[in-house]
């Protein structure tokens, strides 16, 4: 299954980078979301995939009775999902605000402060 997911991750990255390189602000946001999905899947897949073995400990036992999926990457990805949502919410409002002030959603119109 991992090789298949490798191509999914590659596809998400490719689309994300393409969108990030557009001049439109809205596409930048969409690219950002795709990129975080791709990165999460990358970490998740890299640890190895297993079916039907969630990292849970059954009632009455000290440790799981069978091999379970690696819990550590899952914890990392969980954190990443939540953080990227926070970043996204902030970015969306920021972009909206920038659009209100600049009156354009063209990134090339917003580069004066770098000079």
């Amino acid at each position: 299954m991992e090789p298949l997911m490798a191509f999914v991750v590659g596809g998400l990255y490719a689309a994300a980078i393409y969108l990030l390189l557009r001049r439109s602000l809205a596409k930048l946001i969409i690219g950002l979301i795709l990129l975080s999905n791709g990165a999460n899947l990358l970490i998740f897949t890299a640890a190895g995939l297993s079916r039907g073995a969630p990292p849970l400990i059954p009632e009455g036992l000290q440790t799981p009775d069978a091999v379970v999926a690696d819990p550590l990457p899952q914890a990392l990805v969980l954190t990443a999902i939540v953080i990227s949502f926070g970043v996204l919410a902030f970015a969306v409002v920021l972009i909206h605000r920038a659009y209100e002030v600049v009156k354009s959603d063209d990134l090339d119109m917003m580069k004066d402060t770098d000079r």
Partner: peptide, 21 residues
């Protein structure tokens, strides 16, 4: 050009995942 860059990055990530198993 951007499509090329995107595919290059995506291809690199795919290759990476295929190799690190």
């Amino acid at each position: 050009r951007d499509l090329g860059i995107g595919l290059l990055v995506g291809g690199t990530m795919t290759l990476l995942l295929l190799m690190i198993g």
